[in-house]
Amino acid sequence: MSRAALLVLADGRFPAGGHAHSGGAEAAVAAGRVTDAASLADFCRGRLHTTGLTAAALAAAAALGVDPLELDAAADARTPSAALRTAARKLGRQLMRAARATWPSAELDALAAARPRGAHQPVVLGLTARAAALGPTDAAYCAAYETLSGPATATVRLLSLDPFDATAVLARLAPDVDRIADQATDAARRVLDHGPDALPAASAPLLEISAEAHGGWPVRLFAS
């Protein structure tokens, strides 16, 4: 395993389309729920412990070699919002393109062929980690961290938030990311014995509700 491969995959500049998505932050900012660094931190913590945990476990399970199509179906069941399913598949397809160019693998090719319109992004992320010879915990870290970095970057643009404050939010949440990555990896190992039902299904009602509202906005900066 190359630790540097983890840096490549987790780099915010990895060209996989994430820059156009706010992870729900645009809707939360518009609703007045995120207004400053403190509310951004609270938003990020909530997202990390809900959809972040679910995404990290899906990624870890894919990295462990669990059938990605089974995981894709499990991701569908854990993403009730149609708008968020669309966003997850769009991002999965974009990540797939970058992944196949950077770490070519037969498993990535097979998933791309089976889901030409895109598999859920965390599943593709886990399979990408596997192609890069990374482990399940690495995949979980990437997914968990992305849960935070997307909203933090978007909030800098949306609120003109001080970028140092936004980065400090990410740093303070590092211990939470560690815990989520561990929990997600444990859950992913249980999937090997018990199937995808062993995956966490933590959800966030406000993220789901506001994703549907955001999907209908005529003018917005971010795709989700």
Binding site: G24, A28, R33, V34, S39, D42, F43, C44, R45, G46, R47, L48, H49, T50, L53, D176, A202, A204, P205, L206, L207
Partner: peptide, 9 residues
């Protein structure tokens, strides 16, 4: 888990 009463949940 943290953030359950926050702006995302």
């Amino acid at each position: 888990p943290g953030g359950w009463d926050g702006p995302a949940v």
